[in-house]
Simulated scan of single mutants.
Amino acid sequence: MIPAATEDDEQAAAPGLPLVVDHVALARLYGEPLFQLPLDLYIPPDALEVFLEAFEGPLDLLLYLIRKQNFNILDIPLADVTRQYLSYVDQIRKSNLELASEYLLMAAMLIEIKSRMLLPPKKSEDGGEVEDPRAELVRRLLEYERIKLAAAKLDAIPVLGRDFLRAQVHIEQSLTPRFPDVDTNDLRDAWLDILRRAKLVQHHKITREQLSVREHMSLVLRTLQGRRFVVFEELFDVSRGQQVLVVTFIAMLELARERLLEITQAEAFAPIYVRLAYSPS
């Protein structure tokens, strides 16, 4: 149930217009309801235009009319094609005369070709047959169609590699080869092999020798000085007994812990090498 309009609502309504509660507004202008269209409303003639087909030029339109109706391009029925062509030109001439001028030039050419076909054919100077008046137009249409198909193939190509290239950044790596870290099991096996070789050379001379880890650390560093690398086994003097071997091995581990030397191995089961640690300047 719609409530009755009050006196205030009637005074607020413009004279001659129904109340908002009784009718639906056609539109709203700046928030105010509009119940009838203004009598002085001006709508430009080209405000509501719909182009069903968009052509890139006269040749494109002419080729469209021929292909759409499956006409033989080598034997164009100029009367039908010209009639349809002029119908389209009349539509665009009403709205855009500058655009229609280019199409009118082609229309004049079609009319000229048709008039030449209606005239009796003339013999050429050498007595041969005169070329078909449509021949030049057919050549232009075929050439345009080839270019249009080639452009369509180019558009089908992915833009990557055609319009832009993928950026590639080359990062120069260090020239110094980085060997993989030595596995603890390989280091243990190498040490056990040295111990087995040391047992083959045993001395029965009982002596007491003061062994210093720091002294053997210096010996190891002097052995590695000036050499790119030394095989792991060359650092141990097997003839001096197990005690010296143990101290030498502990000295080598201390140097490795203090990052004064590096223990490397090219691959699994490969020889183990020891060298001085590289310190960049």
Rank of each mutant, 00 (worst) to 15 (best):
S87H: 12
L154A: 13
Q69C: 05
S174A: 05
E262R: 03
I194P: 00
I92E: 02
A4V: 11
E131A: 02
L97V: 14
R178N: 13
G16L: 00
V213P: 04
P133L: 02
L63F: 03
Y85V: 02
R188C: 01
V20Q: 14
G57F: 08
L253Y: 01
T176I: 15
K123N: 14
L141S: 05
D90W: 04
V159W: 01
R227F: 10
G226P: 03
I2C: 08
L200N: 04
E125D: 08
L119W: 09
T264S: 02
A150D: 10
F164I: 07
A54Y: 09
L63G: 06
Q265K: 06
L52P: 06
S174I: 11
V81M: 10
E129N: 08
L61W: 07
D155T: 09
E56I: 12
P3E: 14
P271I: 02
L74C: 05
E125T: 11
Q36W: 09
Y103T: 00
I147V: 08
L99P: 05
T82N: 04
Q173P: 06
V138G: 09
P121G: 05
L62T: 04
Q36K: 13
E267P: 01
D9V: 00
V247W: 00
R134W: 02
R116S: 11
Q242I: 10
T248W: 01
S281P: 07
M109P: 03
K94Q: 10
A5H: 07
Q265H: 07
T6C: 03
F55S: 03
G127T: 03
Q91P: 02
Y273K: 04
D8N: 10
V247G: 01
P133Q: 10
I2M: 13
A13S: 14
A190I: 05
Q69M: 11
D80Q: 08
A266M: 03
A100K: 06
A47T: 14
N70S: 14
D80A: 06
L235G: 03
L165T: 13
E98Y: 15
E102V: 11
S239C: 02
D155L: 07
P18E: 12
V50P: 08
L235T: 01
Q168P: 04
F51N: 14
I92P: 00
A107M: 05
F269C: 03
D189H: 12
A79M: 03
S87D: 14
D183P: 04
V138M: 12
